[in-house]
Design a protein around this nucleic acid. Structure first.
Lengths: 157, 157
DNA sequence: TGAATTTAGTGGCATATACCATTATATTGG
DNA sequence: CCAATATAATGGTATATGCCACTAAATTCA
């Protein structure tokens, strides 16, 4: 039974989006009882690391490898629902810092429990070692250095 | 210089989305002159494989690991712009087959040239061998068998 | 054969995410 | 200090993508 030919076998971009769709569904199904999507959980978890001071949107976007305006839009449902708040920066009037509200922190903690289940399933299905290796490779692809190397690579001549 | 802590170091779902955003930008920049986005190029290339008969939306969605309705939505800009057409199936009145128009095929061919450059850059920056390995791993994650294994890993209670 | 069920698609709604233009603040150079 | 420039964020617009409800057509079964 031959697998049908697919672009993803040749195109890394297609392959990664396809896998992201699959993983998105699998993780979402597990953490859905918390009322959060996987993307929201990721974002809130990253914000949580900043603690009470919060983190300015610009560096947050960079850490997430996300466009700044996309981050702003993605935050809207979260601020609307009172899970995240944007606070002014003391020093720089342009800056807004994202911070979890008490409700948001509780929600994130709740989702964290479910996430552990999802991640454990992934490790079980994929192998814990390959899982860590995969994250390391994905981390490389996501790095500014990789982007630089990609852009600098010589086009076909 | 310590890298800041990030969720993506622990969560494979976060890691893959983050890498997908990065790759999306990099590939998009390269194939933009064709007027297509990376996602559109992927989809059209997959449709192209079906040739003149086209391919019903359901199996196309399955191949792309995409929700059927999401596929329908994604196809809209392409049908609107006359790059893809949906034709009736001879045997089954429920089925619509997606097929590239002549214009769409030409556009896809044009984007293909640019894509080769993008993929070559990826291979150069990441290593051709690791690149192929990565696609293979992503293919595993995208497979129905992996989804089954993930869901079976632990019962929800 | 006709009713019940399954299957393929469509449309509405919501989030995710990008690019562009604009605004509000800083920072810098003269 | 002030004008020019740079930076952070916001809002508009468009595509990407998922869930749910609904329709149409095929299949199943009594």
């Amino acid at each position: 039974m031959n697998e049908p030919e697919g672009v993803w076998q040749h195109c890394t971009n297609s392959a990664i989006r396809r896998a992201a769709r699959q993983l998105g569904q699998l993780y979402d199904d597990v953490i859905a009882p918390s009322g959060l999507k996987g993307t929201q959980f990721s974002l809130m978890s990253q914000i949580a690391l900043a603690g009470r001071d919060g983190i300015p949107l610009k560096p947050l976007a960079e850490a997430m490898v996300m466009d700044l305006s996309a981050l702003g839009h993605t935050l809207k449902p979260l601020t609307r629902d009172g899970l995240v708040e944007l606070i002014a920066d003391e020093k720089d009037g342009r800056v807004r810092r994202a911070r979890l509200t008490a409700t948001g922190a509780a929600r994130q903690a709740e989702a964290l429990t479910l996430w552990r289940d999802a991640q454990a399933r992934f490790d079980a299905a994929f192998g814990a070692e390959r899982s860590a290796e995969m994250r390391a490779l994905l981390g490389l692809v996501s790095s500014p250095d990789f982007a630089k190397a990609f852009r600098a690579a010589q086009p076909i001549r």
